[in-house]
Amino acid sequence: MKKNKLQILTNGIIKENPVLVLMLGTCPTLATTTSAINGLGMGVAATAVLVFSNMIISMLKSVIPDKVRIPCYIVVIAGLVTVVQMFVQAYAPDLYTALGVFLPLIVVNCIILGRAEMFASKNSVVDSALDGIGMGLGFTLALFMMGAIRELLGAGTIFGAPVLGTPISIFGVAPGGFFVFGCLVALVNKITKGKAIKKKEFSCAGCPAASICGQAQKGEC
């Protein structure tokens, strides 16, 4: 299954949207999307790390033995996040303050590990970079949309500017997050007519734990 470069780039935005279709990174998605700017910040920071980690892992794919690939990926990703964090703190302190806790949180963002395992370890450096950009855009878009909806309904503001009169504060807390998340997943399913989630490519066989789990061949997790 060879895809052209444009397809790789655009795949992540809707068809294989990491959050809304692949269901990866749900935890940071729910936790950080209390406002549009938070969602956007988390998305941009994760995208940067995703692009670099995809490239590095793609470069190292022939060197890393299969048995220890997961720890290797984690070391690379964690190291990368820390390096990025220190540079941002040193040279862009305003951005660092704005991103706050989201920066170190990227280490545990499973989209990055997921793409390393599912894509970068099997594809060329350029393709991996494009996949990283595409997935990052999809992640950012999903987070921004969730953040914007929750901020609008939960706090009555957009980017901190007041818009609505009486906010529905439950949208700012966890149940509202799940509700908006569910609605967006349903919306994406509607747009793609349910085709998106049926793709085998990222089904159980694509799961990082597939080899340990051993159930993938039977079509269950």
């Binding site: 060197v63 890393i64 048995k67």
Partner: peptide, 14 residues
């Protein structure tokens, strides 16, 4: 090889 590679990666990252 596996632990060796992992160790080398850790050292490089550190």
């Amino acid at each position: 090889l596996p632990p060796l590679v992992l160790t080398i990666i850790c050292i490089v990252v550190s």
